[in-house]
Amino acid sequence: MFSGPSNFVESVDTAFWVVMVISVFFLVVITFSMVYFVIKYSRKKNPKAENIHGNVTLEVTWTVIPTILVLIMFWYGWVGYKQMTEAPEDSMVIDVTAQMWKWTFKYQNGVQADTLYVPLKKNVRLNLHSLDVNHAFFVPAFRVKKDVIPNRNNFVWFNISETGSYNIMCAEYCGLNHSNMYSKVIVIPEQNFNFWLENKSRLKSGSQTTTVKTDTVSN
């Protein structure tokens, strides 16, 4: 029903809209009833009120129905979340290091970059490390977020189906330049990716400066 660049978009957005529909329904019902009662039973039109102490059937109804509805929401949320925690065995592993206020990505062949290149339609697992304080790795377009905490081996994984360039942001407050701790994920077809990785690797043995400048953050 919902499609997007990453494998999580569908389940996250489905859960989002399930909750949205239920919430909007309740908000409309409550607001409409309030306004309607205030107009219909205003003192002018209805000078004498009627005492109604309660109604157990009603109370049970509006306890049980919302309980069922929230359990449904919970289930959508849980199912969507569960898949985020199980990175497939065959995932390509990249080490991500966060520090005040930059990201570094290290591939298994030793190549380092400050822009994250990943292959299209491949399972990618990012192991998250922090050198100093808490950060959070956040790619809104992928529906991926995880805190990056020192000495704690958090990870995220994803599988991207659309090439392009997507923002990486830091989502956990980390001091002065927190709002400038951006990078990019660049998703390219596997062949191009392999070519890039090899090239990088060759460059690395030639010279020490391998990082790609990514000062521009906007699309």
Binding site: V12, M73, W78, P140, R143
Partner: peptide, 9 residues
């Protein structure tokens, strides 16, 4: 935000 998958976003 209670919905796990949505809270991640």
């Amino acid at each position: 935000q209670g919905t796990l998958a949505v809270d991640i976003q």
